[in-house]
């Protein structure tokens, strides 16, 4: 059931991301929904599931967004591992944690992706500094808003289908 939920969540995230309109003042950034799902797995679920989500989400993301294969998977796995290594240090499960992690992950992923495109001449060199800054800012803003929401929604979904224990109110 874990894998089915993960697959459906990633598929839905990719579709919504693809159909979302973009704004120039946000550097044509797309809402990072796939990254938000991977971040949820990094902060709340076992390592194997997080890595699976990173690879599957990355492959879907690259196929849909015309990126070289493996770039998104590499970034998502890196971000997931980084978030996972800090999840017990700070107040895990709080909105503020998700917002901070989300912003850092969004900015980090965009910069790493841009770096990879720049290094491999995948079109990154053609982009101006202002454009990249706007994109980084845009993804950061989206992540602050979306990561907590996606984490809550995914948590509810996992509890609903029995992947996680129900919270018993006191």
């Amino acid at each position: 059931m874990n894998i089915i939920v993960m697959g459906l969540a990633l598929m839905g995230a990719v579709l919504v991301e693809m159909l979302c309109p973009v704004w120039v003042f946000m550097g044509q950034a797309k809402p990072p929904l796939v990254m938000s799902v991977v971040l949820y797995y990094a902060l709340n679920r076992p390592l194997a599931l997080m890595l699976g989500a990173a690879v599957l989400g990355g492959v879907l993301n690259d196929s849909i967004n015309a990126l070289p294969l493996g770039y998104s998977a590499l970034c998502l796995a890196g971000i997931g591992l980084a978030a996972r290594s800090y999840r017990d240090v700070v107040f895990s499960g709080r909105w503020i944690t998700h917002m901070v992690f989300g912003a850092l992950a969004g900015v980090g992923m965009t910069l790493v992706l841009y770096g990879l495109l720049w290094l491999t001449d995948g079109g990154g060199r053609e982009m101006s500094g202002i454009w990249v800054s706007l994109k980084v800012l845009g993804v950061g803003v989206y992540s602050v808003v979306l990561v907590p929401l996606v984490c809550r929604a995914m948590e509810q979904l996992d509890r609903m289908v029995g992947n996680m224990g129900m919270v018993v109110s006191e």
Binding site: V22, Q28, K30, L67
Partner: peptide, 11 residues
């Protein structure tokens, strides 16, 4: 069907 694919290119 989709504009601004990935947001990296004008495609």
């Amino acid at each position: 069907t989709t504009r601004a694919i990935g947001g990296w290119w004008q495609m």
